[in-house]
Design a protein around this nucleic acid. Sequence first.
DNA 1: TTTTTTGGTCAATCATATTGACACATTATG
DNA 2: CATAATGTGTCAATATGATTGACCAAAAAA
Lengths: 151, 151
Amino acid sequence: MIDQKSEPLLTEERTAELREAIELLFFSYRAFTRGPDQILEKRGLNRVHHRILYFVARQPGLSVNELLGVLEVSKQALHIPLRQLLSMNLVKNDKSKTDGRVRELRLTSAGKRLEARLTGTQLLQLDNVFAEAGSDAEKAWRKAMKLLATD
Amino acid sequence: MIDQKSEPLLTEERTAELREAIELLFFSYRAFTRGPDQILEKRGLNRVHHRILYFVARQPGLSVNELLGVLEVSKQALHIPLRQLLSMNLVKNDKSKTDGRVRELRLTSAGKRLEARLTGTQLLQLDNVFAEAGSDAEKAWRKAMKLLATD
DNA sequence: TTTTTTGGTCAATCATATTGACACATTATG
DNA sequence: CATAATGTGTCAATATGATTGACCAAAAAA
């Protein structure tokens, strides 16, 4: 068979719809990080610091290696921002009692306050979005995002 | 009145749900950029280059200033990656015929091929997600993301 | 003609990431 | 016990990136 047209994987129309979805992800992610980023900037901190604070808040006592795994950054890339948070007394790293090699990361009370403030803007943002979109939309959103996150 | 408990804006349970949503955004965005990032890395390019290619593909002939506005980066921060794309013959910047100051950015044919390859992984990713989640979920997802993007 | 806009560039500085290496204490393994 | 492996902290060298502030040229608008 010659001159056979191969079916495109996606129609032109579908491609346009999905390109819109790509842009929604881009613009919404930027809107989503804008609030915390503004707060961080005033303290000379950035997105990495928020991520550290967030995941340490979420899982107090987590080790440096575990944090590296979640964030997917190199030890050297984590080193400086983490040291800054330690020296600013926002994070503490006490020796584990069960394994003396491991440092357990925890937020100090000041760290907890900052993390709550940073993450708080995002919580309110999402709460507003879901309140307006409806709880069915929220469920559907979570379903789609879980699929996207785990592929 | 003393000792009055102020109502928290969000219940503990709701906060936990919304924290999960925060993580969904974080992990899904990372999964979403992983494909293109791997392709870009082989050529010594990064996320910024993809964004330039994407928005130039989306709106051929757009000016440097318009691109700056969309990407929300400084002229100096755009300068180097854009120049790289120009010198790699992936992007061209011809003088506008109606306004000689303005350079109209367009992809070359090689630029179109690379952009299609980069964005293609994301289109397929989203197509798969929506195929599995269902079209109602897709609609709801778009609704929520639009709200998040425009707040 | 003067002013403004757009585009491009430069230099200095600072921040960050990367690679590769090393030291120390602790734990696991033979 | 001796050795290997692990977790952490650090360093140096390098490369890349962003930032600030300034400047110039071309073209358009006033």
